Structure formats: structure tokens, C-alpha cells
Simulated assay, not measured.
Amino acid sequence: MVEHGSKTSGSDENAVRLDDVDRKILALLQEDASLSLDEMARRVGASKTPVWNRIRRLREAGVIRRQVAILDPEALGLEACFFVLVRTSEHDPDWAARFLAAVRARPEVIEAHRLAGDIDYILKVQVRNARAYDRFYQALISEVKIHNVTALLSMEELKATSALPIPDLTGVRG
């Protein structure tokens, strides 16, 4: 059972300890969060109330952030996925705040990461086509000064999942 507030030490210090039932519940939710509580309880071999209580505790512990529907970009006409590599010569807090605001304001940006290494940021941008990407690019550079931008068009998605691997931390010593 998830231990509320229980953390492990070392590199896993922020990880919540989960038991096998917690891991089964999380795996089911990642596969299909629309499963009924009855069906989830049946699949994990427990009754509804304990399963519901575990889900509630996993939410309270921050393991479950939210439950959403995953949409098909192509069904919505968003057939072009670009990975945008951003290099900047600006590293002051004001620039970073403007860049973050610009990225968060653009619905085309479905992921954004600050990186270590030669590239400062990578954005995953989902749009209809190259013209739509160019409109996104022009808007971005009009809002914030960027030293260098490289856009890479994904030719084929080989794997995409929102499911995280669920580690077994029961053997980790605190």
C-alpha cells in the first residue's frame, strides 16, 4: 500500500513506496483510465472500496496528477510533428520568464524541456503542416529573442506513450 509521505533515500528520494496492488492499479489507469471501479477491482483482485481508497491516496500523494483523454493528432488534422531545438545567448531570469510565457501560451507546443548540453531547450510542436509550423515559428521569434532554432520534422512516430514504467521500490532501503 502506498505510504503517504514515505520517501526512499538516494536517487529515489522523491519516489513514493508502492506495493504490488498499487502498481497494478497504476498500470491499469495508464492503459485505460475509463475502466469502472468494479472492473479495476476485479482485475487487481480486490474489492471496490480498498481500490478506491488506494486511488485516492495515490492522488493525494501526487503519484496520479490527473486523468485525461489522449487524442489522435491525425484525426484532428494535425499531421506534422516538429522537434524544435532552441539555443539562446540569453540566460537572465527576465528572458527565461518571457520564453516560458511564450511557450506556455502556444497550444501547438505539447512538450517543452530545458536541456543540459549544447541545446538549451527542445519543444515538441504538433501542427497541420509546414506552413502552420512557420506561423508558429514567426510568432515565437517575434515574442522572444532566440539565438538559433533548428526544426526537425518527424517522418514517422515509432513509439508514443504516456505510460511511465512503474518501479518496484519495495527493496530500496531508507
Rank of each mutant, 00 (worst) to 15 (best):
L37N: 08
L37R: 09
L37Y: 11
L37I: 15
D38H: 07
D38T: 14
D38F: 06
D38P: 04
A41Y: 05
R42D: 11
R42Q: 13
R42M: 09
R43Y: 01
V44G: 01
V44L: 00
G45H: 04
G45W: 04
A46M: 04
S47H: 14
S47T: 15
K48D: 08
K48F: 00
P50V: 11
W52Y: 11
W52V: 03
I55S: 00
R56V: 14
A61I: 13
A61C: 13
G62E: 14
V63P: 12
I64Q: 02
I64Y: 00
V68P: 07
A69Y: 10
I70S: 06
L71K: 04
D72Y: 06
D72V: 12
P73E: 00
L76A: 09
G77W: 02
L78R: 01
A80K: 02
C81V: 14
F83Y: 05
S89V: 06
A96V: 09
L100G: 11
A101Q: 06
A102C: 09
A102G: 10
A102R: 06
R104L: 05
R104H: 05
A105Y: 02
A105C: 04
R106N: 15
V109Y: 03
V109P: 00
E111H: 13
A112F: 05
R114F: 05
R114A: 12
A116W: 08
G117Y: 05
D118S: 10
I119A: 03
I119N: 02
I122Q: 10
I122E: 08
V125H: 02
R128S: 10
N129A: 08
A132M: 01
Y133S: 07
F136S: 01
F136G: 00
F136T: 00
Y137W: 12
Y137V: 12
Y137K: 12
Q138K: 14
Q138R: 15
L140I: 12
L140E: 08
I141V: 14
I141D: 06
S142V: 15
S142P: 15
E143P: 13
E143Y: 05
E143R: 15
H147I: 02
H147F: 03
V149G: 10
T150V: 13
T150P: 04
L152Y: 14
E157S: 10
